[in-house]
Design a protein around this nucleic acid. Structure first.
Lengths: 217, 217
DNA sequence: AACAAAATTAAACAACTGTTTAATTTAAAC
DNA sequence: GTTTAAATTAAACAGTTGTTTAATTTTGTT
């Protein structure tokens, strides 16, 4: 009857209606979380019938999976170019951190969702795309740090695996306690908060990582 | 009739039944998240009637609030004592980080809950206890850093507000991507993972913060 | 124009949600 | 033992949830 193929694992192409739904879902999931977002609110916001979501995606969870693969499609190759660039290792670190933050900041929605929905004991939802992405990131970072170590600029007793938790952890923690820090740092307006991330927070993280890499105790 | 005072802001004392409920709630909230945990499942696990939760705590959200204040009671005082201790600022930083991690690690449940439930745009749930806790933490940290700055040990252009996001963010990010790091660092057994946190991760964070505080660029 | 497939709809469904009710049992005080 | 308040219960309540049905409209093909 309604012969829709739900598991289009290799190459998913979404039509206009599906993309419309995905965009609304992204906004609402990011705003309220997966559980607190009803498919009725999605359908209402997207101005489509509730049944269309089941019709197109199969279920609410499948909708989330589709959303993830829709948004993390081209993300993978972003960092690889950087480590190949003709820059000093320390400047590469600066650029890498800036790239990280900018990238995540521009795709707040999906990263917020990922951060939440896949970190809980939410083992029902498993996405291997995410694992590949993380491993790719680690590889690029390792290349840069090894280069710096060979040049004698970076210390050699660094646990490289713990660098990105510090970068990303700091950023996410700051974002996730947004209202607290808005209040604390008097960043009431959205643009102020955004600006603070792009300048002070980015600089803080760069400073931190560089200090860790260079400082001799 | 059922004259129970729900807003016992200053001094809340819980009876055995309430503590029993709180403990079960903590486990289930941490395992499945706040939304995915029904009060029926709590009541079933705690072997009490559903109505008892409303009876004792007022509502599901109030239960969560009670849980938070129940678990974060004495952290505040531990930190306050630390900054008053007779130690060099740099050793206080070490101790503070160790205290943080140990504390959070021993109370995984509640911190996992906090991390998730209050980070989303979950503005319905507002807990002033949490805000006080964070501000208290910041105050203790500020005291230590200021002391170090006055002694000429720490640099003066540090944004103190961004220190604890780095400490906590790193720790949480590591924990929330547990399975990834277990795989990456070959910490398959639980005790190995725990041990890694207590040694390598703690050391990494201490090293990072100290480097940031001391390093002259 | 006629037909079939796809898209869209309103309504129903069944299960679950947090909370409240009113009745009953337990405990404490006198 | 009686009285009174607290604790506990099963049941009902009112709402929401994700999903499915079956009917209707739209679209594309011949």
């Amino acid at each position: 009857m309604f012969n829709i193929i739900f598991n289009m694992t290799s190459e998913e192409t979404f039509n206009d209606k599906q993309i419309q739904i995905l965009q609304v879902a992204e906004t609402l999931f990011a705003e309220n979380g997966f559980d607190r977002t009803s498919i009725r609110s999605i359908s209402k916001e997207a101005k489509i019938n509730v049944a269309m979501i089941s019709y197109y995606f199969g279920s609410k969870e499948k909708l989330l999976e589709s959303l993830v693969s829709y948004r993390t499609k081209d993300l993978k190759f972003q960092l690889e170019n950087l480590s190949a660039e003709n820059l000093e290792p320390i400047d590469k670190i600066d650029k890498l951190i800036e790239l990280y933050i900018n990238r995540i900041n521009c795709n707040k929605g999906i990263y917020r969702i990922l951060h939440f929905e896949f970190a809980v004991g939410n083992n029902d939802i498993k996405i291997e795309v995410l694992d590949e992405l993380r491993k790719g990131n680690l590889k690029s970072l390792t290349a840069i740090i090894k280069e710096g170590q060979n040049k004698g600029v970076f210390r050699k007793d660094i646990i490289i695996e713990l660098i990105s938790p510090t970068i990303l952890g700091t950023f996410f923690h700051f974002n996730m306690n947004k209202s607290f820090f808005q209040n604390l740092l008097h960043l009431n307006k959205e643009e102020q908060f955004e600006s603070y991330i792009k300048t002070s927070l980015t600089k803080h993280i760069q400073q931190t990582i560089k200090a860790l890499l260079i400082y001799e105790s």
